[in-house]
Design a binder for these strands. Sequence first.
DNA 1: TTGATTGCAAAGCATTTGCATGCTA
DNA 2: TAGCATGCAAATGCTTTGCAATCAA
Lengths: 170, 170
Amino acid sequence: MASKEKEFQNEKQVFSEHIQKAGLRNTAQRELILDIFLRTEEHLSSEDLYWLVHKEDSSVGHTTVYRTLKLLTDAGLAREVRFGDGKSYYEHHYNHEHHDHMICTECGKVVEFFSPEIESLQETVAAEYGFRLTHHSMRILGLCGICQKKDSESAASGAQPRVRVKSVFS
Amino acid sequence: MASKEKEFQNEKQVFSEHIQKAGLRNTAQRELILDIFLRTEEHLSSEDLYWLVHKEDSSVGHTTVYRTLKLLTDAGLAREVRFGDGKSYYEHHYNHEHHDHMICTECGKVVEFFSPEIESLQETVAAEYGFRLTHHSMRILGLCGICQKKDSESAASGAQPRVRVKSVFS
DNA sequence: TTGATTGCAAAGCATTTGCATGCTA
DNA sequence: TAGCATGCAAATGCTTTGCAATCAA
């Protein structure tokens, strides 16, 4: 692995370029937030990222994290995702393949998957209704293997799911 | 069509039974809210439904509409749906086939569709990852036929989309 | 009569905005 | 120096909760 300074050079350059094109400015806060975002290979809420940033620089505020996540999204480095608990999460988007999510409603585990067959069927369906598809969102909710076992073994454990899915959508 | 009094008898009985089983009570507000919900074949937000109810009985409050929509959902008469604008919408669920949604990001039109092929592929994918699928949510976002034309004809019209999709999810 | 229900007001969340101050280009 | 960025506090939008008064069973 490259040294800390050389990591994520591509992503950082994409960000710089986006900032310059838009007539914005580079700041220490934005650099720090981007760096921590890139170092964390998870689905992060703004709140999650705020605390990670806070550990390294406690002067950075919530607002800046929110605004920077939007900026990262605009720059194509992040993608906003929702799992149904009312918050927005963000995941890496630069050089990452498109995928959908499968979420365990018990422990909150999120699995990324991709099905070319489903993708192409979505195109077909959209065309049937005269739509030009621009994006889609698909979540599969269920129990992961581990939680299926836990459920059959015993009833309630005290564990708190990370993502509490309040409702089922379409 | 049956007379107003005889309409939706099945739905109303389902509601009565749910209320009795749960040890709850029938009230004029709940009857009115259910009635208006059933008469409206659309995706309604709590706010939408509140105003429709308000027209017929202005003494009914927001809170009661929220609580009654939850009750209808518990009773299996309604289903909560989210389109990505931060609000919850509700649609008829009793004796309605499962379906997914296609949403026009320009005018907010919502089309319901069902694809058995996609459904079965979802089962397959879930099984591949050891998940037991319980629900899923799928939204296709794009431009409907009409808005594609409008877009090519001219640029901006003053029309306000009913659903403003703020973010793209998975 | 008893306890569920109602509606108001207030509280909760996640997110956004106004604004004075600070800092980059 | 100009004007974008920051961070605080306040505002927002949707939803939930506390509570006293009301009403169904």
